[in-house]
Design a protein around this nucleic acid. Structure first.
Lengths: 139, 139
DNA sequence: TTCCTTGCAAATCGTTTGCATAATG
DNA sequence: CATTATGCAAACGATTTGCAAGGAA
């Protein structure tokens, strides 16, 4: 149980702190690998899970089938582009009031809520208007 | 492209309409199988996806790694128990106003939002208070 | 020296897909 | 007959895990 220091874990967290987008485990893996070529994907997954459990990073699930990670643990909301799949932060007030609202007619203890928005991001909207038939993948 | 009738699809939808909880593809499979023993899992998945695309049923993602399906396509919210994993409906007003709110400081088109609540459901809360160390699985 | 971590590979899990055959319009 | 749908099994992609070896306290 006693946590021991590890270079790998440190690098993973450091990398995550340099990013404002929300990398997936695979992205983290490919990047940390540049500095530490023989790190394994399993180690990346293990540490991301560990860090998330410790509350040092946040695991983000936006229904695209892949977990994203965020070094910014302060409460905030996300937007997912249905065109390119990018996940970006959203500036808006906290919505914890919803929990009270939802708890009103509910038998049980509501601990929290998950909310995220989806649509077409600024870049994809622009590209679409211009010309490019393009089209990313978001399932 | 032209849709053809199929007994399997009909049974899947019928089964879904008898349930107020939100079965996963596997639960649907195991149940429809009772009436139609040689239906295959692939067919269940194909039809659930088709029906969801047609808007006849709803695909629900509550971050537990499995898709749930709901024959009730009217807009409403869900609650996931972190103890037993059950997904239940939640009585509360529509929150589409959030989209407007979120769009205020955002460069892009917000099409909608996903919101769900989590915590301990009535049954698990009761059980916990009684005694049973129990504990389901919700990841 | 204890026991947490890692690298590697194999294993899981939910879901999708290719293909030959069956059912529908 | 032209097509869509099915069953089966193999393929997939993301994530997890067992295990022997490596590293930190």
């Amino acid at each position: 149980m006693a946590l021991k220091h590890s270079r790998q874990r440190e690098m993973i967290k450091e990398f995550l702190m340099t990013r404002t987008d929300h990398p997936t485990a695979d992205i983290v893996y490919m990047n940390v690998r540049k500095q530490h070529p023989n790190i394994s994907l399993g180690t990346v997954y293990r540490n991301l899970t560990l860090l998330a459990d410790l509350g040092e990073i946040k695991r983000i699930r936006v229904g695209d089938g892949v977990d994203h990670f965020d070094a910014d643990t302060s409460p905030h909301y996300h937007f997912v582009c249905t065109e390119c799949g990018h996940v970006t932060d959203l500036q808006m007030k906290n919505l914890d009031e919803l929990v009270t609202l939802a708890g009103a007619n509910f038998d049980g203890q509501i601990a929290g809520h998950v909310t995220y928005f989806y649509g077409i991001c600024g870049d994809c909207g622009k590209a679409g208007r211009d010309a490019s038939p393009a089209g990313g993948a978001y399932h």
